[in-house]
Amino acid sequence: MQWLTLLQKEMTENVRNVKWIWVPLIMILIAIMDPLSNYYLPQIIDAAGGMPEGAEIQLPDYQPSDIVMMSLGQFSSIGVLIIALMTMGTISGERKSGVSELILVKPVSYVNYISSKWTAAVLLTLVSFSLGMVASWYYINLLFGELSFGALMQVLFFYGLWLMLVVSLSIFYNTLCRTPGLVAFLTIATIVLMNLVTTIFSHLLDWSPNKIANYIQQLLISGSVPSELIGAAIVTIVMSAVLLIASVYTFKTKDMAA
C-alpha cells in the first residue's frame, strides 16, 4: 500500500517533469541512429560531395545481428549516461533539498522508499529501452533482413538486466552521497572500471555482467542461448539485489538530516 503510494508519486513526478517523454525519445533516437546511418551511408557520402575520383570503399554487407549490436553499443555508452543523469537525484536530490525531511518523518519504511524509487527508475529505463529496440528492430527488418521477434525478446530480456544493474548502482550511490553530480560520476566511473576489469581478467570473469552484450551477439549468430549468458544474467540479478540491500542498509545507518 505505502509502496504503491510512493511508486505512484514517482511516476507522477516523472510524467510532470516530462521524463516520460524525453527519455523514451532519446532512447529511440540512439537506437535507430545506426541502422539508418549505415543503410544510407552511400547516399550520405554522395550528398556530402562524394568520394574523390578513383577512390572506392567497400561497404560491409551487414547482417541484422551486426546492426543490433551497433544499437546495443549506443545503449552501453549514451544509454548508460542518460540513465545515470536521469536517476542521479532521485534520492540524493531529495535529501539535498530537504524534501526528504518531510517524507521520512512520516512512518515511511526505508525499504519501501528505496525500492519504489528503484522500481520507478527501472520501469522508465526498460520501457524506453524497449521502445528504442523495437524501433531499431523495425528498421532492421525493413532495411537489412529478417530478425525474429523471439530474438528481439531475448535481446530485450538480457540487455534489460544489464540496464537494471546500472539503475541499481545509481540508487546505491544515491543513498551514499547527497550530491547528484557525484552520484552520476560514481555510477559511470564504476561501470568504466567494471569494463576495464572484465577486459583485463577476461579469461577469469566469464560471468561478468559487462560481457552480456558479447554473449547476446553469440546468441544472435548461433540462435541458442550460451550457458555463459545464463551465468552472467544470474550474476547481474544477484549484484542488483545486493546493491539494493546495501542501499537500505546505508540509508538506515545514516542520519536523515544534516
Binding site: E13, R16, G98, V99, E101, L102
Partner: peptide, 10 residues
Amino acid sequence: LPQHPVFYKW
C-alpha cells in the same frame, strides 16, 4: 515541521 520546509514544487 522543519525550520525551512521544502516541498515537491510540482
